[in-house]
Write a protein that binds this DNA or RNA. Sequence first.
DNA 1: AGCACGCCGACT
DNA 2: GTCGGCGTGCTC
Length: 642
Amino acid sequence: MHYVMVSPTEAGGTSEFAFTYHYHEPLAVGQLVEVPFGRRTSLGVVTGASTKPEFTTKPISSLLDIVLPTHIVALGVWLHEYYLASPAAVWQTMLPAGITRKRRGAKPTADTFAIEHHEVTLTKEQAAGLATIRQNKHRTHLLHGVTGSGKTELYLDLAREAIENSQSVIILVPEIALAPQLEARFRAVFGDIVVAQHSRQTEAQRHQAWVKAFEAREPRIIIGPRSSLFLPLAKVGLIVVDEAHETSYKQEQAPRYQAATTAGKLSQLTEARLILGSATPSLETRYLATKGLIGYVRLAQRPDGLPMPKARIIDLRDKDLLSQSRFISTPLLDSLKVTLAEKRQSLLFINRRGSASSQICADCGTVNLCPNCELPLTFHADQMKLICHYCNFQRSPQATCESCGSSGLRYLGGGTKRIESEITRLLPQARLARLDKDSATPAYIQEVHKGLQDHSIDILIGTQMIAKGLDLPNLDLVGVISADTMLHLPDYTAAERTFQLINQVSGRAGRRQRQGEVIIQSYTPEHPAIVAAATHLEEPFIATELETRRMLGYPPFSHLLKLSCSMSTQSKTHAKAEELAETIRKITGVTVLGPAPSFLEQTEKAFHWQLIIKSPVRARLIEIARSAPSGWTIDLDPGNLL
DNA sequence: AGCACGCCGACT
DNA sequence: GTCGGCGTGCTC
């Protein structure tokens, strides 16, 4: 009799990943099987051989016609150990739903691939970067390239090399918006071996893509979201994580994995080269490069020889500059006028939804809060309503302050809608478009893109979603309405994110023929994050930011664990959190922050509390997470502390 | 994830 | 006395 470890795909516990079963013949790692589990049967993955245990084992019921690549099995085991995810969470993410269903007619397609060697001349800098990567001193490289520096050229070259070695390529992209452009570039060179994935695919499409990857006899180039890492490709030669600093690479549901980190593990398992591409790498990644743990390639110039856009910071505390509008300073307005007169395009970036932020009392400073979430309500002028962006509570704005009775209520800050009406008033001849979460349907995004391309739009007003990926030849001017909004979030990454965001949105200005102009409005114009983004002198900011992290014991100098729980009443939740915090505080070598109500303390019928645990030793955090009572949500390397 | 086990409140 | 609430813990 042969004993094997099998990980049941329906096992929900985090303590055991695989259980011992027996079978009449030896089984390969990755073999899919059916096993009895509890009082039902479950699909299972053979993770390794075992010996006869103390307890009596159950037999494997049957074998399926699928053997997963061993690196996929190893990656599953790793996800369980590194993020403390249950087998159910791991396999639901790694395997397509309905894998047991009969596979219909997905014959191995004989994709012919004739790689077209149409010569792309690389710049000196690009060629040098490529040479560094090809020296293979490191398996992983940080490709630190300013927006428009041509990181894609390097991806294409490295992909060609992998394909010629019959190895597949995985390219991760953070958002659907970026994928089509990249896909087009790759398809032009590699044709049908390029496979695009996206998170909006149906179960059936995902299943089909999975089967295609499994049965592919030729190497593929996969362009897709973080889950593309788990496609069962036979050989992987190159993994690219584009815009590797993007926060969307962290999955918010179990398994709560970070895609760049997971890509690192996959590259180790497959010996694939890993490229982390970014214009604004995270401090963690920069730190690894500085320490020489990963390679570093810098692309500081744009291939077209264009200088970086010229940036100006406008001090909003100077009231003279706000004489024509409360939100648009005179210098910004002047630049908008010039750009418009030259028949060029502008982009106005607002880091907020709605028409205004909070309704604030000018006399006592009281802000209107949501009665459920205790977070500021956002004013929507078109509906004349105050809306909570977290629980969707709505009510009409009041005439007098609830706290002091004053009638001096004001709206603070301007959202996209407010800015839109300001611009309409100030520049009535300009053709406007507004793009934010409230207005963005795929069809509308398409329409706006078209309008920008054929220049039927002069000024685009938008939130985060316009900060990335837009490549517009006629865009000269970028205005950041308020650079501070993100700076005051209660999170240790606030400054870094502000820097990244301003950098990214600035990068939209002046591609192709002209040098762009960026105008950054701020109430704290001397803040290092804002100065660094404006001057392109990032080293001093990075250095001081790293020093702060070192002193406060935040990543990259420690690891973080976020434990959260939700219960029906405020007091119950608080008590439970306090009890666990007390227990953990007794453990040496770790720091406990909190417990505190979550940023979104109450949603629907539950109260959320959380505690943050810091430790330089990640294994210590795993121990703590393992010993947490049931009911607690475990998030290792949380993307934020909100 | 399901699904049992087990220990307290509302009922016959 | 019993029925059932869901908090807790196990599944080889």
